[in-house]
Design a protein around this nucleic acid. Structure first.
Lengths: 270, 270
DNA sequence: AACGATTTGTTCGTATGTATC
DNA sequence: TGATACATACGAACAAATCGT
């Protein structure tokens, strides 16, 4: 009574999905069938479906029908690791590879020299409109788009001889080892900042996300510090939120056995 | 041409918002005005607004109008800290307080003894349908809903004398210190798992989120380990994704100066 | 390869309800 | 109370994608 009709239809379908009556991947009745079943107009049925779609419960495929979304097994990325740069650590991607045991690929870095402002300048603790080197890569795992990553380095590192930073090709053993061995710039620690936001159009396209902004993305900024306590790199990584999770280990933590996606039973709120 | 009209209208409005022509909190033209401006029907204009709403760019207020959403200054929570339980660390909330310097409040714990399954049993490494103690709290900062938190403890801890775990009142210096001083159960480390998902109805209500599922929530599971390497606690915390961010420090990291929300300038993807 | 049937997507018009000022 | 503005609901028509024949 209080609720509009499209909500009642939506809640009814939602129940059928969450009770398991409609399993993952199952097709819902067509809009025409729902229109007859609930004695509503097609537009009202579509409003109900739209409501379910916003919540990520169903997806529509033109010419085919409406389907309950399939659950996705998330990738797990460990944010904590060795800080000293050994074993390539401090590089988010290495952890990903270890964690997933899948075959990763990455595009050739797109290198740009640019003036920066805002968050980048702030995290690198340099003045706005200073020039920095940015190295951008698209990363995939088993051919599936996985992350977009951009690293920013102060131009001073290049001036001190780190010319590989401005070459558009992979740095064999990683930038961390390269800077340590050539410039004696040791990475002694890093700070990760985890945020979640709506994807921009580029990200939507690369990750093949539904083009409404319903699936969010993680943005993880890793600011790395050298032995002098100054930031020597900022890496911004973006991951789709619906198929990724992150792990942080502190202190003595036994090796992980297995991981599961977000809670089913652990939701005990009321 | 390729795009439907409602998308073109939406993109045009989006541009005006992102370029700053329409500032945060500004009112958009009414649907009637937009209908005339773009020479479309009111329904089409509403489709465009719906598209912007899904992306969290605008909000509608019945009887008033459509407004550009105001940006929210995020709370910052540090996930890494001392693992040994000193200074109450290992308790997420303590870090929050330190990080925000605001006045936190929390409801009296709701204590339940229940059989658990799924993720909880898995993280605590105990058999399914074993009994555990759960302690649930709603936390606020300056009166604003902040997080929902549920901690699970193996029943064996109570049997060994930790009776305060089953009392519905705060444990003065924190459960970590209580278990250490009374049961010699030291927390030597923990593992945090960060996921993002749509809020359930309870979370939507508590956090006063828009009742479409557009704002996601973080779910952070903290599994704490004692000196024997066994899990002694699982804490599940839920935060709204639109006003929270998390920090992870590894290695030597200088003290934080200030933090800013998700990137503006750091988005360099293409 | 072509066509028709099915299904969702877009757009219009219209009417009425409800919230706010 | 009335005016304004968004919310819901109906009906209709055509477009576009998909699939099987």
């Amino acid at each position: 009574m209080a609720n509009p009709m499209y909500r009642q239809i939506a809640e009814d379908l939602r129940l059928k999905i969450e009770s398991g009556e409609l399993g993952h991947g199952d097709q819902l009745p067509t809009e025409i069938e729902l229109r007859e079943k609930y004695d509503a107009s097609r537009n009202t049925v579509r409003d109900a479906i739209k409501w379910l779609m916003t919540r990520g419960l169903v997806e529509t495929r033109p010419g085919q029908g409406t389907f309950v979304v399939a659950r996705i097994e998330p990738y797990v990325t460990i944010l904590t690791g060795e800080a000293d740069g050994s074993a390539g650590a401090g590089d988010i991607y290495v952890n990903e590879v270890k964690a997933t045991r899948r075959t990763p690929t990455a595009t050739v870095p797109r290198v740009e020299i640019q003036q920066i402002a805002g968050v980048v300048a702030e995290e690198l603790q340099i003045a706005e409109n200073t020039t920095v080197v940015s190295r951008h890569q698209q990363r995939s795992i088993d051919g599936i788009p996985f992350s977009l990553q951009t690293s920013f380095y102060p131009m001073s590192l290049v001036e001190r001889g780190a010319i590989k930073l401005i070459q558009a090709e992979d740095i064999p053993h990683g930038a961390v080892a390269y800077l340590r061995d050539n410039l004696k710039v040791r990475q002694v620690g890093y700070r990760d900042t985890v945020t979640v936001r709506a994807p921009d159009p580029n990200e939507t396209a690369f990750f093949k996300l539904p083009d409404d902004g319903r699936v969010a993305v993680y943005e993880i900024r890793r600011t790395a510090f050298d032995q002098s306590g100054h930031p020597c790199r900022l890496t911004v990584s973006v991951y789709p939120a619906d198929r990724n999770q992150f792990t942080v280990n502190v202190g003595e933590v036994p090796p992980e056995i297995l991981t599961r996606p977000a809670s089913d039973q652990s939701r005990q709120h009321q």
